[in-house]
């Protein structure tokens, strides 16, 4: 840094070498400004994520109304209990993440690490349950493109299920395409999140984030909660269509 001084708004001159906290990057004037900028930037990024998933929600809305019987039939092949358990798991992980942010705020290193690891465990549990569900889809030939058969929808073995006309049964492919695209994109975000969490844990062991500079952990918390919110919408949209039949 060449400049010896920073003039603040009211003309007060601070000797920079002394008034410069360790985590303040040179182009910010104050720590608050840096923190605000970081969380604003994170929120803008989440805005792009909203629109990223928004395109798929839009597609869902159109096709659900077009092919409602196919969506009902497709939905009823999903395991609602695994879906509910996954929702609970994810909400728990959101709680542990929120508590991790709180621990960082309180500068408690041990509890920060504990909560981060809990979040990772819950995240992996979610993915584990999800992969069980995915495997089942392959067995039932409900994966568009890879292995798909409309047999179960035209001649259902389950006596309670409603048989679809072959034409409408074909449309279950749209439901499963969206199911895989949306949950797959969500799972991808979970995987990215867990990877970042692992890095955060390692750095938290080294004493990071509990020294008053916790922007990273705060912003990651925002990301993790956002992924949770996406699931909060995916769950009723994909698992809870006309379950009463």
């Amino acid at each position: 840094m060449d400049s010896p001084a920073i003039a603040t708004g009211n003309g007060e001159v601070l000797a920079e070498a002394h008034a410069h906290p360790a985590h303040l990057r040179h182009h910010f004037e104050t720590v608050e400004q840096q923190r605000d900028a970081a969380s604003f930037g994170m929120w803008l990024f989440l805005l792009t994520e909203v629109m990223f998933f928004g395109g798929m929600f839009m597609a869902y809305l159109v096709y659900r109304n077009w092919y409602h019987p196919a969506f009902v039939a497709g939905c009823n092949t999903l395991n609602i209990w695994l879906g509910t358990i996954n929702t609970v798991v994810l909400i728990c992980s959101s709680l542990t993440m929120a508590m991790a942010v709180y621990s960082a705020e309180m500068r408690r290193k041990k509890s920060l690490i504990t909560y981060l690891i809990l979040t990772i465990v819950l995240g992996i549990a979610f993915l584990g349950i999800k992969s069980v569900e995915y495997a089942e889809k392959f067995e039932l030939h409900h994966v568009p493109g890879a292995s798909f058969s409309i047999e179960q929808f035209v001649h259902p073995t389950n006596p309670k299920a409603v048989a679809l006309a072959p034409d409408m049964a074909e449309k279950t492919q749209v439901y499963f395409s969206l199911y895989f695209a949306m949950t797959g994109m969500h799972a991808l975000h979970m995987i990215i999140g867990i990877t970042i969490l692992l890095i955060l844990v390692v750095r938290a062991f080294g004493g990071a984030y509990t020294d008053g500079h916790m922007t990273t952990i705060e912003n990651f918390g925002l990301y993790w909660h956002f992924v949770d919110i996406i699931w909060i919408f995916l769950f009723p949209l994909l698992y809870l269509i006309s379950r009463y039949r």
């Binding site: 909660h225 919110i229 909060i232 919408f233």
Partner: peptide, 12 residues
């Protein structure tokens, strides 16, 4: 779902 999302956004 919207109510839940609001809770998460507002408090978490």
């Amino acid at each position: 779902a919207c109510f839940k999302a609001c809770l998460v956004v507002l408090f978490f």
